[in-house]
Structure formats: structure tokens, C-alpha cells
Design a binder for these strands. Structure first.
Lengths: 197, 197, 197, 197
DNA sequence: TATGAATGAGTTTTCATTCAT
DNA sequence: AATGAATGAAAACTCATTCAT
């Protein structure tokens, strides 16, 4: 009696959430299946393996991030500050909703152990760095922009971790504030130079 | 063969390294035992459970950090910059040698899943924050010092994570540079104010 | 090989027999699995834990006793003696076939050690006492009936134990005879009183 | 530094109590050692094996019973009732203090599994039966006396079990009362016959 | 005698995965 | 597609026992 009880996308979304909360190894396939309302065996109709499911979860996260944020970085109608705010707001919303970072959880558990996944994660972070960098290049020179982008994203991931330890969201919000302030100041100083001419 | 093959301290040190590299759940007791050159059952002579062993590893890490770095923060013979450098050098050395942060790995794997450990981790980070804060209070007011301390430590942990993803140590060294520069600039600005009086 | 090799009921029946013969702690899950012709891991598909399996065995024993004996105690077509005989025959058959009492084994091994089980066992014995009591109330007053019921069931369990020690079934059969005789005499004495009126 | 911390007799007494409470398999050598205040390894100086320790516990129980009760059955200065009372009081005290019967616990756990022990237990019960029988022969004929003795001891063991299930000592005390009453009535009836001559 | 480290076989339990229906 | 029984390898943990000091 084959009747679709749940779509592949819904399973991925559930898996993403559980992986984020409990980590890769502490999450069992039967647990995901149970939350999905199907049986363990049925999961294997959609995904060949747990690794496959996790890769799908990473890709889906990446895709959502792309559509929700990265895609708008090229928008010529937005100011530098608008674009940065948009990116920051998107990631803040995501990390607060998920109460953690799936990428961070999975990286540390799998990086030395499940090599196939490392690449997906690297791809995601590279693209994030590229996007922040692109925005920053509007006010910084190329090298500096990239450095700040890397630094900022590392700071975000670190603060998400601290947020989990201390159950205190201000770690994350403060990093984001710092990023905004830094760029605002830079822009003001550039404007000053401009006006002084 | 009853005679002591390995000390409790040596076991803890090995466990700490393996936990850091492979994460908590991917590390099995038999694996640790094997590296120690003893049998799985013998591990349980020294530690009642895996959680117990990990707690010992965390505490040992904490203790080493305390002895190697925190203890010198109160030294009146050192300048603010010396103390900060000392702390930074110690953590940089530790994280580069271990090729990662045990605390970060364990936090993300266990925080929502093995509650007993959360407290040990919180204690460590609180103490670290306190020590950086104490140093910074020499040049910042209290509230600001604490904020910067929290921000810095979050940034360090985040950069250690990125370091593992990209196999690129510059994430970590650059955060440390940033911390040094920031404080140096602050001190210079304070000196300027002093001299202008 | 996915298809059903053995039903849950069959597993319970096997477990019941093995638990009765070897006791709870001397019986391992792999042993039960082996007799069932499945793997240890497959047992856990049907039962969450050893305790769960044992509870199922107790409940199944209880249910059989209920269906085979307790259910007929309310039958108005039977004389007091018939009902008592029916109950006695049923328990005698059960205990001789099993060569022991699962309840007794499990009680003594688990009562101070696996608290979850105590309740199931208490429930069974309470119901047994109630049933014997109900029959006896036809010839004794309420209080006395209950006392004799408790005494009799204790005597049965003790005799099953002695039966195992001495490999001598007469311990059990003699207790049953004693119960029958006692009631018969009582009835005769009541009839005498009746006739003398 | 060999200094006697605890005597062999004290260890046996402790083992006897723990075996009674928790059963044979649920009692570990380290647990007994811990209560004794010595280390597990040291237990093996006194006893070659767990089975050896348990056999010692059984023998010690048997010996105490012998000295405390059986030895007085031959006392010509006591009446039948006195002797029976003495035996009953002794066993009642023992079973209530121990909150259970070691023999019963161990029988059911080991009878089909550790054959060496079965013999010790049979010997104890045989001797107990013999002693009760000897007393009863003063008022019953030989065969009848033995039957009642067996019946009574089975009833005692069963009631000790029920006492553990229901945490209700009256199971045991009532069996003992029943034994006393039965013999008193028999004696009274014999006296009647005597007087009627 | 007592210690305590080590053993090794055993226990319960978990879990990703397979597959016939 | 979904089921659910079965697998088998591996996990954490237990414990009676040994033995050099």
C-alpha cells in the first residue's frame, strides 16, 4: 500500500533539525524516521545511507542559504549596508531558530572521520566567505575584505557555539552588531575623505 | 600481568588527544584502551564510565590551562601586553598542537545530550573569560572588558573550527593578532590622552 | 532474510520456559535468541530490554492462568469443590510441566534489585489469592477464607521450591491434597450442621 | 603490610546477608569486598571462588542453625511443645532479621546451573526435616510426622517468599502459629484419649 | 595478608542497513 | 513507497579471577 506519507524535502528538513540539535552520531536513523512518522526501513527508500541523508541536509541548508541570502548580494539596488544587513539577518534568524549551527556540529564530529562530508562543508563556507567578501570589497580593498570576511564568519560560528554553552543569544547578536558597526565606521570614514576632497 | 602498564594521567592525556581528534562519539573505549596498550576492561578499573573519562580529560585540560596560563595573570611584574601575549601564546600553542579544540568538539556533540558535561565546560570557559577580562580591565572599564573577553574567546573557538575545516592555521593566528593589535591601540590612545594633559 | 521466523508470542513462550529453568540472571538474551533461531539484535526488534521481555513473560503467564483457571471461578454451574479442583489441577499441571515456578524464581532474584517487576508479580499473586478466596467464601466467612487462601498459595510456592531441591513432585501434590481435604471436611461439617437442624 | 582487617567469619557473615538480599548472581565479589572494607583481590585470599564463598555462607548458615536450634532437639528436659517453639522461634528470628531466606534465593538461581551447591542445600533441608520430624514423632507416628515436617518446612519457605513480595511478615508468623496450633491440638486430643482410659 | 592493576570473556544494548511482502 | 522482521558488527559496561609487589 504505497502512499506517500512524507516528502523527501520534509524528511531532509527534519533531519537537518535533529542533526543540529543532537549531532551526527547521537542521531539515529530510527529517531529521524520516528519523527517523520515512518519506519526506519522506509527512510532507505529515499536515502541510501545515513551519510547520504546528512549530505542532503547539508546541501539543503546550503541551498536555502543561497536562495535566502547569497542570491541578493548581486542586487544593484541595495546599498553596501543593506546587503550586509540582509546577510546578517538571515544567518541570525537561522541560527537562533535552529538553536545552533548544523555545520559546526557536523564539522567537528566528521571532519577527521567521514571525509566525503568535509568537501560539502568547505564549499558552503567558501561561498559564504565569497559573498561577505564581495560586499566588503565595496568599501575595503580585495585582500582586506577577504580577511575580514573570514574573521567574521569564524566569529559567528564561535559565538553560536558559546550561545549553546551558555544558553545566551547575546554572543551571536553582539558579533553581528560588531560587524555592522565596523562597516558603518569604515563607510563614514570613506565619506569623510570623499567630502574633504 | 598485574604491574602498572600505564598511569591514570597518561590514560587521560591519550583520551584527551583522541577525543579532540575524533570527537566523543566516534571514539570508543576499546580504541582508547588499545592505544594505551591495555584491555578495554582495564580502562574501567580507572574510570567508571566513558563520561567519567571524558570529564577527567576536560578537567585535566582545564588544570593545565590554569597552571600554564591563568596562574600568571595575577603576576604584578608583567605589563598588560605581556599577560595578554602569554595567554594568547599558550592557547595558540595548545590548539595548534592538538589540531583542534577538545572543548569545541565536545560541546557540540554533548551539550544537548550528555548534561553532566555541560557544567565542566561552562566552568572552563567562565574562568577563561574571567582571566582575559581581568587583563583587559587594566585598559578598559569593567563592562567593556568583559564584553571584549567574551567576544575574543568566541572568535578563538570559531577560528579553531575554521582551521580544522580548511586545514589553515592562519584563522587562529589572525584572531590572536587582532586581539593584540586592538589592545595595543587602546593602550597607545590612553597614553596619548595621558601625555596631552 | 526478512520474513518472519518466529512470532512474538513464540518468543515469549520460549523466554518464559528458559527464565523458569535457569532464573533471570543466568539467562542471557543471546541464549534466548539462539533458541528462537534468530540473532540477539533481532530480539530487540520485539522487546526493548531484557526486563521488558521478562515482564512480557510474566504477563503472558498471568494471562494464561487467568484464561485457564481464574475465568471459571465465576461459573455458577460448578460446586465449590469442582472450582477448587479446577484451580488446583491447573496450577499443578503448570508447575509440573515447567518443572518449577517462574514467579518464585524471578521474585527471589529480582524483588530487591529490579523494582519494576515487583508490581507485575504482586498483581498476579493478588489475583490468585482473590480467586481462591472467592471460592472459599462459599464455605468460610470472609476473613478466614482470605487467610486460608494466602496460606495455601504460600504453601504451594514453597512446595514447588522443595520439589526442585529434592526432585520430588510429591511436595506439590501433597499440598494440593491437603487443600482439597481441608475444604471437603469443612463442607461435610457444614452439611452435618444443616442436617441436624 | 599484611594486617588482618577482617576475619574470614566476618566476611562469610556479610556475604550471607548480601546473597540473601540480592541473590547470587546480582551480588558481585567487589560489592562484598567493598562492604567488608577490603579490595576484591583480597577476597581471593580467603576463598578460591565465588562459589566457594557461597558454599561457605551456606555451611555457616547451616552450622548456626545446628548450634542455635537443632542441637537442643535432643534435650530431654524439654516438652514437645517447648522444642517445637524453640525451633520455630529460631527460624522466625533468622528469616525476619535476614528479610528473606538465603536458601530459597540460592536454590532457585543455582539448582539447575551450579550443581555443586544443590547438595549442600539438600543436606540442610534434610537435617531440618529430620529435626522437626523427630519432635513430631513424640506425638505422631513416624510416617505422618515426616510428612507434616516436610509440609511445614515447605510452607515456611513459601511464606518467606510471599513475605518478600508483599513486605508483610504475617505470612511467616501465621504459618508458625498454624504449626503450633496443630501440634497443641494433637497433644490435647492425645491427652483426652489418655484420660479416658 | 592485603593491594590494585590487569585480564578476557561475557553481558545488555544500539544501530545502520537489507530485503521480501 | 511503505512495512517490519532480521541482520551483524560494534558499542558500553560487568565481573570473576590472577598475580606481582
Amino acid at each position: 500500500m504505497p502512499k506517500q506519507k512524507i516528502t523527501k524535502e520534509e524528511i531532509i528538513e527534519i533531519a537537518r533539525q535533529v542533526f543540529t540539535k543532537k549531532g551526527y552520531h547521537r542521531t539515529s536513523m530510527s529517531e529521524i524516521a520516528e519523527i517523520c512518522g515512518i519506519l526506519k526501513g522506509s527512510l532507505y527508500h529515499h536515502f541510501r545511507s545515513k551519510e547520504d541523508l546528512m549530505t542532503a541536509a547539508i546541501d539543503s541548508f546550503h541551498k536555502k542559504f543561497k536562495e535566502g541570502a547569497f542570491s541578493q548580494v548581486a542586487d544593484p539596488g541595495l546599498t553596501t549596508q543593506d546587503k550586509l544587513n540582509m546577510l546578517i539577518n538571515y544567518s541570525e534568524k537561522t541560527y537562533l531558530e535552529d538553536e545552533g549551527s548544523m555545520m559546526a556540529s557536523i564539522v567537528l564530529e566528521t571532519i577527521n572521520v567521514v571525509p566525503g562530508i568535509a568537501e560539502s562543508i568547505r564549499t558552503f563556507f567558501n561561498e559564504w566567505i565569497d559573498n561577505v567578501s564581495t560586499i566588503l570589497e565595496e568599501v575595503y580593498e580585495r585582500e582586506g575584505a577577504r580577511k575580514i570576511a573570514k574573521e567574521s564568519i569564524a566569529a559567528i560560528e564561535g559565538s553560536v557555539m558559546m550561545m549553546q554553552i551558555f544558553k545566551d543569544e547575546s554572543f551571536l547578536t553582539r558579533v553581528h552588531e560588531g560587524m555592522r558597526r565596523r562597516v558603518n565606521e569604515k563607510i563614514r570614514s570613506l565619506d569623510l575623505v570623499e567630502n574633504n576632497k
